[in-house]
Nucleic acid binder design. Structure first.
Lengths: 198, 198
DNA sequence: GGTGTTCTGGACGGAACGGTCAACAACTAG
DNA sequence: CTAGTTGTTGACCGTTCCGTCCAGAACACC
């Protein structure tokens, strides 16, 4: 019997996500969020709660989408190692450099908020653990497929790959030249994923 | 003939730095800065300008101190490769984990502000370029000293090491278990700095 | 068509924001 | 001791902040 929503919840979450992504949490005002979402104050508060709750929801959905994408890429990849390489090289994938400059919402949020907001730190741990598990799986497949040194510890390598990727993300945020950023990614990958000594 | 300052400028910069470091730029209010510095409004504005200018000064001095420390460690290190290892492992060096959770002021600031504040992005590039140069120097010394594969490109390796360190810093900020963080650092180092094949 | 429930938009409040300014204090140079 | 210069303090300003609340609108159900 209630009056139905006039807006699409997912669309609002994406619009709000972009605002937080571009400005950071603290620098994004509720007025900004109302503007980009097109909602009135009552609607936004009614549907999502206050700024903090809204942000956490946005962050969780962002992470979930990310993990889903990685999982799909792993399944679709001809070889396990391809997914690992894409994961690192993809940071510099957008030829305009805009994506690299924008960085990763989770990484940005962790850097800004992890100290003051335990929820964000916990979300980051959850997400990075899941990514590590996926990378481990990909590397183990790579070992079976003969692309990765079978003597290497896949889980350890996965952690190193994640660190390298996070580093490339951080460097991309400085506006570093895209060719150089790609070179960093390649250089790290070449050293982290030595071909099996056959 | 002027009236002399009643405060020590460097002490104020350090106190303000800690405030920015703990809360981030946007979440730190001028009142916070007045409290931690002990100054009145007129004094702080008179000596350092507005919040933005004060922050940039703090960030530059932080970076300079960092670079100075790295240079000294390189000069003091028995072997070039020691400085490289310290650079990465040092992130998890504080046994309480507080330093790891705090992260790096420059990295945090870049993640929060690089998009909206070109000055911060430029400062980050400047700093990371200088660190890369130092790491390259250390690695070249390591090659001469027989600790680093002489066939590796030192500059490329330096970039990969920097990325790995930034990644470890990012992971440390999530509150990841300290032993695990150390393992990540070791794992990355072991793969980035293969012993020379003698 | 009436009724009950939810949604909507904006007015509103109190607090906190960054920044200015003027009156006063503290010193130096002569 | 006087004059001149700078430092200090805190009141003050206009703006923006987040969040609440309410009057009215839009639907579903009976």
């Amino acid at each position: 019997m209630p009056r139905p929503r006039e807006f699409d919840e997912d669309r609002v979450v994406l619009a709000v996500r972009d605002a937080f992504w571009d400005r950071g949490y603290a620098a994004t005002s509720m007025d900004d969020l109302l503007r980009v979402s097109g909602l009135g104050k009552g609607s936004l508060y009614g549907a999502f709660g206050d700024k903090h709750r809204l942000f956490l929801r946005v962050l969780r959905e962002y992470d979930d989408a990310n993990l889903r994408g990685l999982r799909e890429r792993l399944e679709a990849a001809p070889r396990g190692v391809d997914m690992v390489r894409e994961f690192v090289l993809g940071v510099a994938g957008d030829p305009t450099g805009a994506a690299a400059r924008r960085g990763c919402l989770l990484a940005n949020s962790t850097a800004e908020l992890a100290t003051s907001t335990p929820d964000v730190a916990a979300e980051a741990r959850r997400s990075y653990d899941a990514i590590t598990a996926l990378l481990t799986e990909a590397l183990e497949r790579g070992q079976r497929e003969g692309d990765v040194d079978p003597d290497a510890d896949a889980a350890e390598t996965a952690r190193a790959v994640l660190a390298a990727q996070l580093g490339v993300v951080a460097l991309g945020r400085t506006g570093m030249d895209l060719a150089e950023l790609t070179a960093v990614a390649r250089s790290a990958l070449a050293r982290l994923l030595p071909a099996p000594s056959r």
